[in-house]
Nucleic acid binder design. Structure first.
Lengths: 208, 208, 208, 208
DNA sequence: CATGAATGAGGATTCATTCAT
DNA sequence: GATGAATGAATCCTCATTCAT
């Protein structure tokens, strides 16, 4: 029968998201299994028990972490694409710029996390594939098709072209959260994306 | 009363690599922390104790897993590039083909593993970055530079162009070992690489 | 701007006993250790913190639970026996009837509780044995002895005969709070006590 | 990553039942919830982990504890009753004697345990009620009916008479494992059962 | 060499208890 | 007084590691 006491903070109800933020950082850094709930608590500035007030299990915390902040961005992009009106190459550049901005965000930790843990959480993998990957692909497929239809892009197999477009971005994202932390190999996001778009758009230029 | 000779185990020395293979598969699937030594043992068809005969600790097993099989391939490629003699676009296509072959290999599990665990094993991350990534980049940088010098490729920032070249392959590799297992979203490696090379080479074509 | 008087809580001082009642019910059902203070609070319709206003620790609550309601009944019986004036068999029947009435009371939960927790609370076990069991035995011993002296009961070893008299009642009490909740095996208290008294009194009839 | 070692015993495969014995003792003494697995381990002379080799969860251990040794005794008694051939009062005395022997056994701990935990384990309560209580009642009902039919016992409501017969025994059993441990109130099993059978059999004597 | 029973440190989870509001 | 968010000791359970056979 315990009996001690202790101080306490008392910060509004930002608690849950503070905890989820801390968890996202640690899960990304160490992986889900290797992260101790106590470390999450410490990083969020609360006690172990407090984490359990908001998240019944470690897995629930994991789910909450993934829920926060992916869809919003995707929706914004979908909106932007749907309402865009100029030439497709410009649209693609805009998307690339947007990605570059997201790179500075801690949201980029999520893909690495999903990738690393998909084997342990099939349900989450499925959810992510369906809700995020599929939608992102549709978004891009739409943009590409638009370009082809308007005669602004060469008539390639749109479906297969998507990876060429996104892969470098994904690579930057993963690099940032893995090897990039441990080596001095240069990987300048801005330069990479610029060169990438240069090559890609030239490679998609319609034949004269 | 003599006993019939019991059929003893064959290939006693294949043991270590059998164990490492099993470990690679499980580490990739579940991550290092979430994989139990016992499961590795079962998958390798040996007992828990036997694993310890060959690998003093779980981390040693991890290191052994990573050691097997990456360098050899890289060296072969370096050789191929060094001795290649035709036009650079052809060289790049050959490299891409080679990558496509590697995709069917269980070696592709390694990048995912390194990516997922780099946070927990900085030394390994460093090693991988230096021994594999750096070398691969030099290899490709060399090929690109050769193309530029021979007037077969446009004069782009070679350093920054590498990601555009490799990222789709990396993406296929990671997809195969993560979300690809849990969704029916199509991702045909052959088609992807073909379209990719098509766009890339066209995008790198020197101006006429 | 005056606010309408909010309907405040009535019976502020009924609180402690309401809480003790809730605790008795839950302790009996699940045992002391398996009962969470929070559940007691919920059942009593108050908050966790409120329980602590009245009972400094869980163990204090336990003690309070046991204190309520045992002695009063015992005293009443002692009084009844002391003042009874008719034939002893009738006295014994009256005692049995009284027991039967107590059976409908939630007081019967206490014996089960004491029984289950005596290992964890030796002090309470001792208290219960001395204050309740011993007194009850004296009470009954007195009644039996009176019967023997008045020639209304056979001359048996009074001390050893008590269990024969009370055990069926104890059994009904325990049954009610344990297996009786989970089976459809019939156990009709009235019939049992009737048959019991019939056998017992006949068995104690003095020889002609 | 732990790394220590430790000595080890190596006692045949009595392990499981040794552990179950230790658990029975502690569960009875303190209750299921209040017993720590570690204490069971210590008492059984093994380590915490070893308990889990044989019993996946604490609840499984609980079930195993209950399984051991109840039915065998019941079956033996059923056998004895079925083959008995003399006068019914003698049969009843034999049953009582047998109970008295069981009293010295640690099997008597089980009823207390079931009683205390039935609220937390309804399934077990049901099982115990059906497999043990019901069978025991049938056994005794049979014996009583036989007596009535042979004109050796008075024609009472057999069903309701059972409690009068067994309750004192049950009381001795419970007393032994609860208050009996904490008080000096005398409760001599032999004397109690003797007086009990004396009263009971006289009370059941058929009218001349 | 191979085995798998045994060990115990480590981490997830629960809940009695405190205290700012 | 009442509340319930916060705390952290206590406990269940897991699994890397050891070692007698």
């Amino acid at each position: 029968m315990p009996e001690p006491a202790a101080p306490r903070r008392r910060r509004k109800d930002a608690r849950p998201s503070e905890i989820a933020d801390a968890a996202l950082a640690l899960f990304t850094e160490r992986g889900f299994a290797a992260t101790r709930l106590e470390d999450v608590a410490v990083r969020a500035g609360v006690s172990k028990g407090t984490v359990y007030i908001y998240f019944p299990t470690k897995e629930d915390l994991f789910r909450a972490v993934l829920r926060q902040g992916l869809l919003p961005n995707l929706e914004a992009m979908e909106q932007a694409v749907a309402t865009f009106d100029g030439p497709t190459p410009t649209l693609l550049r805009q998307i690339a710029d947007r990605m570059l901005q997201v790179l500075d965000t801690n949201l980029t930790a999520i893909p690495k996390l999903v990738l690393a843990e998909s084997g342990n959480f099939p349900a989450i993998a499925r959810m992510y594939a369906d809700e995020v990957v599929r939608r992102a692909m549709q978004l891009l497929t739409g943009a590409f098709r638009r370009g082809v239809e308007r005669g602004e892009l060469r008539d390639v197999d749109v479906q297969s072209a998507i990876p060429t477009f996104v892969a470098p971005f994904l690579m930057l994202v993963l690099w940032k959260h893995s090897l990039g932390q441990h080596t001095d190999i240069a990987m300048d996001p801005k330069a990479v994306m610029e060169t990438h778009m240069d090559i890609l758009l030239r490679g998609l230029e319609p034949r004269r």
